[in-house]
């Protein structure tokens, strides 16, 4: 809501653009989608730092201990 108002006062063009969503350059739209997914996939593919793998092991261990006790 407030966002919309903000846009209106700051740049009225945005609203025109939104109405014209269908004519946003489809090539650019496709490119945005592809690059977003690729950039994100690269982040997902990064190896975990040691501190996080260690934490996972610790947590798993906690669980095992608990189960054994109960």
């Amino acid at each position: 809501m407030s966002d919309k108002d903000k846009n209106k006062s700051v740049s009225p063009d945005v609203d025109n653009l939104r109405d014209a969503d269908a004519i946003l350059n489809p090539e650019v739209q496709g490119r945005i989608g592809r690059e977003l997914r690729r950039t994100y996939a690269d982040l997902v593919a990064q190896p975990l730092p040691d501190k996080l793998s260690q934490l996972l092991e610790q947590l798993a261990q906690t669980d095992k201990n608990k189960e054994q006790k109960s």
Partner: peptide
């Protein structure tokens, strides 16, 4: 609706930024 409009505004902004850059186009 808010979520949709956030996504739309993000796409519009990116379209403007990236579309301007290689505007050899259509």
């Amino acid at each position: 609706g808010t979520m949709k409009s956030r996504v739309n505004r993000a796409r519009e902004k990116l379209t403007t930024l990236l579309g301007e850059k290689d505007d050899d186009g259509p």
